[in-house]
Design a protein around this nucleic acid. Structure first.
Length: 298
DNA sequence: CATACCGCCTGTTAGC
DNA sequence: TGCTAACAGGCGGTAT
């Protein structure tokens, strides 16, 4: 599942292989992949033909490629990989992938950009850049509600701690809320909570500022180490633009490791159902909240 | 406003 | 063996 380290790895690949190359043809083969393009497939293709990508940017799990300023500097190709989306840079003679949804060809005849997505939760669209509201940089309108991510130099730690403590919800929910802190999905939420020795069911307004700061530090450690390894390819659906997986799965402490020993204390990792998805934690290192602190009715 | 939950998707695996 | 059901889960929309 592509989260911040995976999306950043893709962004880096795009920045090296698809910038400043005039686009000559665009093929949208699956309408669902561009469902957010309200004006339709032809409008999508027309916006890209003849221009080029000027840069590759990211916030949280969204990435976007601003179009060449000479023609349409206010617009970008916005991408979200969803559960299983891949942006691949492939030689033109490479056989079409089974779930190839969008193809972008360049005038130089070099490798083309392909959007491949098995579960179709991802998508592409052309969108206008707008002021971000929390800083000097512009972001696509589709991305404007997304908080800065913890690897963004302008991420405001104090604001995150303050806003989190104003909420009354489980801390894992808060980590997954992209309007509070972006880029974290189920895998890195569990890994970060384990590093911070916090149970994900702890309630945000009962956590102290130092505890939340240490959680934020754990989040940054996990994301940074995973990024160094090219991300996590837990279910092999995540690959970089060259089709290669990352290696962080080897370093996962709890995610997907039910029954195996906690790397810190040796106790068996426990799997629970949480928010209708799987969560993994160490029952010794991450003690559940006292009942009085539970989110359940008082 | 804050918070919780549903539905969208398909390939893989578990269970009968 | 063959079928069904569960599972994976990010996110926008909607309900409370």
């Amino acid at each position: 599942v592509p989260e911040l380290p995976e999306v950043e790895t893709v962004r880096d690949g795009l920045s090296r292989f698809v910038l400043n190359r005039p686009i000559i043809a665009v093929q949208a083969r699956h309408p669902r992949a561009i469902r957010r393009q309200l004006a339709g497939a032809e409008d999508f293709a027309a916006a890209l033909r003849g221009t080029s990508f000027a840069a590759a940017r990211r916030r949280g799990k969204y990435l976007w490629l601003p179009l060449d300023a000479d023609r349409s500097g206010a617009r970008s190709l916005v991408a979200h990989l969803g559960m299983s989306g891949q942006l691949l840079v492939q030689p033109r003679d490479t056989q079409d992938e089974k779930h190839l949804h969008v193809r972008i060809e360049f005038a130089d005849g070099g490798p083309e950009l392909r959007f491949v997505d098995q579960r179709t939760f991802g998508g592409l669209m052309i969108d206008e850049l707008v002021a971000s509201g929390d800083g000097p940089d512009a972001v696509p309108a589709q991305v404007s509600h997304i908080a800065r991510d913890p690897l963004d130099p302008l991420f405001d730690d104090d604001r995150f701690v303050r806003r989190t403590r104003l909420r009354h919800t489980e801390v894992k929910r808060a980590l997954l809320d992209q309007t509070l802190i972006s880029g974290i999905g189920n895998i890195y939420a569990d890994e970060s909570l384990w590093r911070a020795r916090l149970n994900g069911a702890r309630i945000t307004d009962s956590l102290t500022r130092p505890v939340l700061r240490s959680l934020l530090a754990a989040v940054r450690e996990v994301l940074t180490e995973s990024l160094r390894q090219g991300g996590t390819s837990f279910d092999s659906l995540y690959v970089n633009v060259n089709g290669q997986g990352g290696y962080f799965e080897r370093d996962l402490a709890v995610y997907g490791r039910e029954g195996r020993p906690c790397p810190r204390c040796g106790r068996a990792i426990v799997r629970t159902s949480f928010m209708n998805r799987s969560s993994f934690h160490c029952p010794r290192c991450q003690r559940p909240p006292r009942l009085v602190d539970s989110v359940l009715p008082q």
